[in-house]
């Protein structure tokens, strides 16, 4: 699956939410809850994503030239967003990660709810994925 395919799937999944703020938030919390457990020991300063209002940790493993991500957040909504980014980027090569433009935010209506100050967190998360990709190139 390419990052484009995954993003298209996400956009499709969000359609039932009809850009309703409350339903969107609840959906994000649900998918966040379904994430794999994250090892407490990985919640280190190194893995912390700087620039989010909530705490976000992201770590990775390199297998056969592809990067696999795992992560966690102390807030449910951010955790949902993180899980989407992990779904998009996990299992991709560093090049593909670096070349990916995240367009699903605009197409799902998420941008309407995640205004400028809130999107800072999202930008910081995206940057962290890309920094990891860059350092594994």
């Amino acid at each position: 699956m390419t990052t484009t395919q995954t993003q298209n799937d996400i956009v499709e999944d969000f359609k039932v939410l009809e850009e309703d703020f409350e339903m969107t938030l609840n959906y994000l919390m649900e998918i966040g809850e379904k994430m794999d457990d994250y090892d407490e020991e990985l919640k280190s300063d190194d893995n912390l994503v700087k620039g989010c209002q909530s705490k976000v940790w992201l770590s990775h493993e390199l297998k056969g030239g592809k990067i696999f991500f795992s992560g966690d957040s102390n807030t449910s909504i951010t955790k949902g967003l993180l899980s989407l980014l992990i779904k998009i980027f996990s299992g991709q090569t560093p090049e593909d990660i670096l070349n990916t433009k995240l367009y699903f935010i605009n197409k799902t209506g998420l941008c309407r709810f995640i205004g400028t100050q809130r999107s800072n967190g999202l930008e910081a998360m995206e940057n962290k994925f890309k920094i990891i990709a860059l350092s594994n190139k």
Partner: peptide, 9 residues
């Protein structure tokens, strides 16, 4: 519920 989630909800 974390205060951040609370604020958005």
């Amino acid at each position: 519920v974390h205060y951040y989630d609370l604020g958005l909800l």
